[in-house]
Simulated assay, not measured.
Amino acid sequence: MEAYDVVVLGESLIDFVPLKKEKSRMFKATPGGAPTNVAYGLAKLGNKVALISRIGSDPLGERIIHALKEGSVETRFIQRDKKKPTTITIAMPQSEDSGRYVMYRNNTADGSVSFDEIPDDLFNSAKIFHCGTLAMSSPIAYQTIQQAIKEAKKNGVIISIDVKLCPSSWDSQQEMIKVFNQLIDQSDIVKMTKEESLALNINPKHIVKGNNKIILVTDDRGGAKIYYREDCIVCKAPSVNVVDETGAGDSFMSSFLHFYLHYAHMLELKELLTNGLQFAVYAGSKAMQRHGAIIEF
């Protein structure tokens, strides 16, 4: 098995993004899904990245594969489902919070990503395993993610997760909170929004106390914070002309992981996290200046 800098697991889908902020019938179909965006961003930054996902055997799935290959992401671990379609998401105009996305993922392919189709030795030499969480409400995807984390930990791989809440996908809010808190406890690097930390009733200061866990909290256009040990680092976002916020957090995450991966052995921890946060905030701001989540760096 080839060695990968980062192995990413999670949903691949198509985002329909409005071309104008005002009420419009014009949408652009762009490949997306938080982990897919992160994989693409990491690859464009020069990292060797493998993506594990599941798409439908349909034209939308082929569009995703084509875009990822153009971005140098390894796609041979993406599973094809002959019975279930590729997930789609519509970003509604005139809305800027997490509720702007209308998701069509009832019985779609991403929830059936199978651990049995993942090669046993894929995690042997990876440095970071990054996991998306949107599909956690599906029992099959939940088990796959748990098994993959266990396999990665067995090989000493750094575990990174991106918290993506979709309350409408869960039968129980209590179950959702329980699952996400369990996942955060298993991880070394966690990214969430300020809104998500409040929804999960999480205080990042308490989570990082007494361990080496790193918590990244983004605040839309307000910038971001890193919590680790007893410290909190703050970075304000630059003022930019916002065209589309889709995928800005994913560009932020891929950039931070890239910086962490390549400079951890060179910099003292506080300097590493400070500079990494600044680099990530810049990337997130850049992503806001164009349509779609997959961007050129």
Rank of each mutant, 00 (worst) to 15 (best):
V6L: 10
V7Y: 08
V8T: 13
L13M: 13
I14Y: 08
P18V: 07
K21R: 13
E22R: 11
R25M: 09
M26I: 14
G33A: 10
A34Y: 01
A39T: 05
Y40N: 08
K44E: 13
A50K: 10
R63E: 12
I65Q: 03
G71K: 06
G71L: 06
F77E: 13
R80T: 13
D81H: 06
K83Y: 12
K84V: 03
I90N: 04
Q94H: 09
E96H: 12
G99V: 03
V102I: 15
A109E: 02
S114H: 08
I118L: 07
F123K: 08
S137T: 07
Q143T: 12
T144Y: 09
K154P: 02
K154M: 11
N155M: 09
N155F: 09
S160L: 10
I161N: 03
V163W: 01
S168F: 12
D171P: 00
K178A: 12
N181Y: 04
Q182H: 13
Q182L: 12
L183K: 07
I189T: 07
I189R: 04
I189E: 02
T193A: 11
L198E: 14
L200C: 06
N203K: 14
P204R: 04
I207K: 05
N211R: 11
N211K: 13
K213N: 08
K213Y: 07
D220E: 14
D220T: 09
Y227R: 00
D231C: 01
C232Y: 00
I233Q: 02
V234L: 09
K236M: 04
P238L: 08
P238D: 05
P238K: 10
A248V: 04
D250M: 08
S255E: 03
Y260E: 02
Y260S: 03
Y263D: 07
H265G: 01
L267E: 11
L269M: 14
A280P: 01
V281Y: 04
Y282V: 09
Q289V: 01
R290E: 12
H291N: 06
A293P: 01
E296W: 02
